Amino acid sequence: MLEKWTLFKKASRFGVIPVMLIPVVLGTAGAYVWQGVFHPFLFVITFIGAAAAHLFSNMVNDLWDFRNGTDTEAQHTPGAISTNSGFLSGGVMRESLFALLTWGLLAVAAGCGLLLSLYIGWEILWFVAGGALIAYFYVAPPLRFGYRGKGYSELAIFLAFGLMPVLGAYFVQTGAFSLKPVLLSLPGGLLTTLLLFNHHFLHWRADRQAGKRTLVVVWGERRALIFSQVLLYISYASLIVCVLLHILPIYALLALLTAIAPIRIYRSLRPENPSEAYLPLMGASQRASVRCGAVMTAALLIQGLF
């Protein structure tokens, strides 16, 4: 049983799940602080549904990148670093079983959404349907907007890992929409978008060979690296805006410290770098996204308690 759980965690890339769950907690904290409401049962269902949706997104990406030949190309391109689980491209798991697990996760997410709709209204199903469509058509035909290189994939990531989980979690608790959770979603959502953008540096040459036109492929490494740095600064500028608008307390500015590590790594990079040079940037980007969201959440909860 333990071995199966270990395999599942590797196949679904379970380790990156905090980038989805922290926005859910953040939106819930906002509802508690601003509206004084907290429904534990609804929070647990939202948490489980969001986790399943994120793991579905990871696995369906692997499934279609394998079918599209992108993962195979990454294995055969010198210097490219593959970011998929390797379960399909490495022959670890049959495609049929991998697909069964993938759609099983979607069923769990959809079931949680249906259960929530019985308690708070059908509007929550917009979040469920929107998240599922973004996850699936990110790499699946005929849309495959993650392959088009026009910023569609970056917008999709921001919606799926920023706006939708924060606003959706807030709506689950309050039954209402508000501008506050929208603004609250900006720092974490943009940092997660940055994380997904930066991972393209690891295999952009293989993506180009496979016809996957990410912005790194379209712009080239030099221009994409400049954009990556600009996106980092915009992310933290949005945190300052949230404090200035009293959406977050002033001590939430401690989250600015999480920018130090990625800034240091940017300064060590050249306009053109081998793929492995971006591995530290990937790690720093993920930690910045998670830690910034965690500090924002803690700041909100402290404000609510005192």
Rank of each mutant, 00 (worst) to 15 (best):
E3W: 12
K4P: 07
K4W: 13
T6H: 12
F8R: 07
K9G: 04
K10V: 01
A11P: 04
A11C: 03
G15F: 09
G15L: 13
V16G: 14
I17K: 04
P23Y: 10
L26R: 11
A29R: 07
V33K: 12
V33M: 10
G36V: 03
V37H: 06
F41H: 14
F41W: 14
V44N: 05
I45Q: 01
I45H: 03
T46L: 09
A53V: 03
L55R: 00
M59Q: 10
V60D: 00
N61Y: 00
D62Q: 01
D62S: 00
L63N: 01
L63D: 02
R67G: 04
T70G: 06
E73I: 06
A74N: 07
Q75L: 15
I81F: 10
S82A: 15
T83E: 04
N84Q: 01
F87Q: 06
S89I: 11
G90R: 13
G90T: 10
V92M: 14
M93W: 05
R94M: 12
S96A: 14
F98T: 07
A99R: 00
A109E: 08
C112A: 14
G113H: 04
I120N: 09
E123H: 14
V128F: 09
G130S: 06
G130E: 07
G130Q: 04
I134Y: 09
F137W: 11
F137T: 03
L143A: 15
Y147W: 08
R148H: 11
S153A: 15
E154I: 00
L155D: 10
F158S: 00
A160S: 15
A160F: 15
P165W: 03
V166Y: 05
L167W: 04
G168E: 05
Y170M: 13
Y170W: 14
F171C: 04
V172A: 12
V172D: 05
T174D: 12
G175F: 09
A176T: 15
F177P: 03
F177D: 07
F177Y: 15
P181G: 06
V182G: 00
L184V: 08
S185R: 06
G188E: 07
G189S: 06
L190G: 01
L195I: 02
F197I: 08
N198I: 09
H200T: 09
R205N: 02
V216S: 03
V217T: 06
G220D: 03
E221V: 00
I226C: 09
S228F: 10
Q229Y: 15
L232V: 08
Y233T: 13
Y233P: 07
S235Q: 07
Y236I: 07
S238C: 10
S238R: 02
L244C: 11
L245A: 11
H246A: 13
I250A: 15
L254T: 12
L254C: 09
L256Y: 01
T258I: 01
I260F: 08
P262F: 04
I265P: 04
L269N: 02
L269I: 05
P271F: 13
E272L: 09
N273H: 09
P274Q: 06
Y278F: 15
P280D: 02
G283E: 12
S285I: 11
S285Q: 05
C292I: 02
G293F: 05
G293M: 06
G293D: 05
A298Y: 06
I302F: 14
Q303Y: 12
G304W: 07
G304R: 02
L305F: 11
